[in-house]
Design a protein around this nucleic acid. Structure first.
Length: 532
RNA sequence: GCCCCAGUAGCUCAAAGGAUAGAGCAACACCCUUCUAAGGUGGAGGUUACAGGUUCGAUUCCUGUCUGGGGCGCCA
């Protein structure tokens, strides 16, 4: 990886801590990589950044991977050598599916918890957004060597389950449903199947059916898989709640009031305290979630990542604070990150469609995937930072489907395959010589340099979790390839003979490009079609 | 009222504190006797909501204001 190599070079030469060195991709006229190191050193050395940069460039010996190093306005710009590009292209062709992978996180165990939708109804668009994000983040982390577990927390007990049961009982009796009960069509279907009179039991039976017949098929349809479904009920049965309460009590954070058990969240800086055990003896979601996270810590994970829906935004700060206390009580030294995906709004004919699981008025994720396809749905959701409010324009998603960015990327892949198929027929591929790769055309160079970035894209994403970087990278690769395609012919014909060396290099580039696109699309769970 | 998120081109969005803020869509002008035109090339489009501050440098960090969304239950 070039960025790492440059960091090592700079670190060794100038005695700077390696992880304090930033390497960026500048605009093309400023080279292939650049660093602002001179700015940060200028202050200590009491010289101008320009002077420092120039002195650094003078001291940097000509490394093999670099064609040129220059100091410009305080920045140090690096230009990759042709030799370096050729060797990375060769590396891509050798490593194939593994190109871009690393063992950076090899001694880290990560738990990614996502979707975790209540088993009280179908998956919503918001569930989809967090779901795809979690899935791809897990894929990226795995590619960087982390030991990743994917988990779905099933809220199979508690008030919402009881409400589901009540909804079904009311429908059976032909009664009108209260506002906080579930009104969707699927509830009526469930009512036909389920017998019983106890709301909790009926609710639990219904939840089991929903999980199996609604949620699991949707998860399959999403192309997502989990290592583990963690039942809230089982957590309670294990006595995990008492265990948790014991620790919190020892930390002096518990008191009783009005027949309920409370957590002194105010002591942790929140505006009000929270109930852990209701006066009727039932556990709240909050205490269960605390216990669940304690359980995760005790399972030996180093990093816990939760991806929560927008409706849990208010839950985030208080759980974070409690977990901080809890982890220090049990001497767990890991990292907890709670990510909240912002709302997905559905816009239809220029107007927002109000969605609610309870009222049953929503477009399900299934319906959306059926309508626009999994590839489009994934690419669309993955393209946006989790923190942005997302408007999904249904009309647009359908109308422009032929011009959707995902097709642009897939089309590039199909074109690559087409070239390779013909090259195969002409017997060109078996004659490929990796040691004779050389690029001279601007389009070849730009594409090759972009492919070289792929391992860095993955490493950066494993570090900052900005998954939208992947679809953007794919678009960039496709863009550069399409330009290359127009300008640089790969296959010779009678009318257009091409030098053997050029064919060899371009063919290698085409193979490498196809490989990188495939690898990246694979991590995003998007198909790479051979033809379109 | 308090808390969280956002505000960037006509629209949807990118951009680890870096150099002249980038893509796609929409609109405009060109390019198919050559590997897939679901493509390419060129131009147009911006006071990064507003006002201060920190910094060599701010879309990015801090403070305040405005606008939009979400959350503030012995629900999950």
């Amino acid at each position: 990886m070039i960025k790492d190599a440059l960091r090592k070079l700079l670190s060794a030469q100038f005695k700077v801590e390696i992880n304090k060195i930033r390497i960026d991709y500048p605009q093309t006229k400023f080279g292939d990589y650049s660093t602002n190191l001179a700015f940060t050193l200028a202050k200590q050395q009491k010289k101008s950044p320009t002077q420092v940069a120039q002195a650094m460039v003078d001291k940097l010996g000509q490394a093999q991977m670099l064609a040129k190093v220059e100091a410009k306005a305080g920045f140090i710009n690096f230009y990759l050598s042709g030799q370096c590009l050729a060797s990375v292209i060769g590396q891509i062709l050798k490593e194939k599916r593994n190109f871009g992978h690393s063992d950076f996180g090899a001694d880290m165990k990560v738990l990614v918890e996502f979707i975790s939708a209540n088993p009280t109804g179908p998956l919503t668009l918001g569930n989809g957004r967090g779901g795809f994000f979690g899935d791809v983040l897990a894929n990226v982390l795995k590619s960087q060597g982390y030991h990743v577990s994917r988990e779905y927390y099933v809220n199979d007990t508690g008030t919402q389950i009881e409400n589901l049961g009540k909804s079904i009982l009311a429908i059976k009796l032909g009664k009108k449903l209260d506002e906080d009960l579930y009104q969707g069509e699927y509830v009526k279907q469930l009512a036909k199947k389920i017998t019983g009179e106890n709301a909790v039991q009926v609710g639990q039976a219904a939840a089991a059916i929903i999980l199996e017949e609604y949620l699991q098929p949707s998860i399959d349809k999403m192309g997502v898989s989990f290592d583990h479904y963690f039942s809230e009920k089982s957590l309670q049965q294990q006595g995990a709640i008492e265990h948790t309460l014991g620790i919190l009590d020892k930390a002096g954070l518990i008191y009783h009031h009005d027949g309920a058990t409370w957590l002194k969240t105010t002591k942790l800086g929140e505006s009000k305290d929270d109930v852990l055990i209701k006066s009727d003896g039932q556990y709240t979601y909050f205490v269960c979630d605390i216990a669940y996270h304690l359980n995760k810590m005790q399972r030996g994970f180093n990093i816990l990542i939760d991806i929560l829906g927008a409706d849990h935004a208010g839950h985030k700060p208080r759980i974070e604070k409690v977990l901080k206390i809890l982890s220090s009580e049990i001497f767990w030294q890991g990292q907890i990150e709670i990510l909240v995906n912002q709302l997905v709004r559905l816009v239809k004919n220029g107007q927002e469609e109000k969605m609610s699981k309870r009222s049953g008025t929503f477009v399900t994720l299934d319906q959306l995937i059926d309508k626009v396809g999994l590839d489009v749905t994934r690419f669309f959701f993955l393209s946006y930072a989790l923190s942005t409010h997302l408007d999904f324009d249904l009309n647009l998603a359908q109308e422009r489907s032929a011009k959707n960015p995902v097709f642009y990327v897939q089309y590039a892949h199909a074109r690559l395959c087409s070239i390779l198929k013909k090259a195969q027929q002409q017997g060109l591929i078996k004659n490929l010589v990796l040691s004779e790769i050389e690029f001279s055309q601007a389009e070849e160079l730009a594409l090759a340099k972009k492919l070289v970035q792929y391992p860095e894209i993955l490493a950066d994403t494993a570090f900052d979790w900005q998954v939208q970087r992947l679809p953007f990278y794919c678009k960039q690769v496709a863009d550069l390839f399409h330009s290359f395609y127009e300008q640089c012919h790969v296959l010779p014909s009678d009318k257009n003979p091409i030098e053997k060396k050029v064919i060899n290099s371009r063919l290698a580039l085409v193979l490498a490009c196809k490989q990188v696109l495939e690898n990246c699309l694979y991590l995003m769970g998007i198909s790479a079609p051979d033809k379109m």
